[in-house]
């Protein structure tokens, strides 16, 4: 099965704004869900400098962009994406 990719931007802006705390996602994720996702870090995704995307830190769950990301928001999106995939 193809895994869902969670991309945590660790460019300087996102890192300062909280990405360093989001990197602990693997510690808070349910082991059953953890199996179905792949968590990767990324260089600046380019959203921090462009208008209209919202605030850093940015996280992508597959193609879904999350602005002002928190662990809660990311977890919710992961559940949503996985639920859709299971249909």
């Amino acid at each position: 099965m193809k895994k869902t990719t969670v991309t945590i931007c660790t460019g300087t802006t996102c890192y300062i704004m909280g990405a360093s705390h989001l990197q602990r996602l693997d510690e808070v994720l349910d082991p059953a869900l953890l199996e179905q996702v792949e968590i990767v870090g990324s260089r600046c995704l380019g959203y921090c400098d462009a208008n209209g995307h919202g605030k850093a830190p940015f996280v992508k769950v597959d193609d879904q962009l999350i602005a002002d990301a928190t662990l809660d928001k990311v977890l919710a999106q992961i559940r949503k994406t996985l639920a859709k995939g299971a249909l």
């Binding site: 660790t10 460019g11 300087t12 802006t13 260089r43 600046c44 921090c48």
Partner: peptide, 10 residues
Amino acid sequence: LVGARIDVLE
């Protein structure tokens, strides 16, 4: 660093 547009990872 953000203000000066220096990306440490680069």
